[in-house]
């Protein structure tokens, strides 16, 4: 198959917009102005008026990748490969943080008809279902943070599996495999 990575590896659901603003065509608010040094003449980086679809995809792939890295790290700790239980809460929080604005990373115009992405058209055609899938991920990852804080590794592992189910369940329907 053309792309190796495909099903298994591709992290990428596809993804996009830098701003949470659902309407990507509106000029994004400039990124937080540099706080202190108003002194210098350096102006803040100009925000692109419109996020290019391929940039949007690259960004959401990066976001998905971050979630995946935290998942991987959590799995490595819980399977006993590395002795870093003190990192579990941080990774769980990373996963949960990544879940919160996930749906906004898929603005109109960043589907497979418009650009190269592993996001399926169903994200837009069945958007309500997609939002439910994202919500499931948010709930499961919130619980993961909670459970990780108790220090109960067995329960954390069980919850990690639940989080994984929400990832895979969403990928079933909304991610292209090739």
């Amino acid at each position: 198959m053309k792309r190796v990575v495909a099903v298994l590896v591709g992290l990428t659901l596809a993804g996009v917009a830098v701003s949470a603003d659902p309407a990507p065509t509106t000029p994004a608010a400039p990124p937080v102005a540099p706080a202190a040094p108003a002194v210098t003449s350096a102006s803040p980086p100009a925000a692109a008026a419109v996020t290019a679809p391929e940039k949007a995809v690259a960004y959401r792939q990066a976001e998905m990748s971050l979630i995946g890295k935290h998942m991987k790290a959590t799995r490595m700790i819980l399977s006993g490969e590395v002795a870093r239980p003190q990192d579990l809460v941080r990774h769980a929080e990373g996963i949960h943080a990544g879940s919160m604005d996930l749906a906004a990373l898929f603005p109109d115009g960043t589907g497979p008809a418009k650009t190269k992405t592993e996001a399926k058209a169903e994200i837009w055609s069945k958007h309500a279902d997609f939002e439910v899938a994202v919500k499931n991920f948010q709930d499961a990852s919130a619980k993961l943070v909670e459970v990780a804080k108790t220090g109960d590794l067995v329960a954390t592992k069980a919850q990690l599996d639940k989080v994984g189910e929400t990832c895979g369940g969403c990928h079933d329907t909304f991610k292209i495999k090739d």
Binding site: G68, G164, G168, H171
Partner: peptide, 19 residues
Amino acid sequence: ELLTSGMAPDGDMIGGVMR
């Protein structure tokens, strides 16, 4: 690991028939 948890080495979770 993939056959156990469905997780690829990069942390991605597989979907579809294989899941």
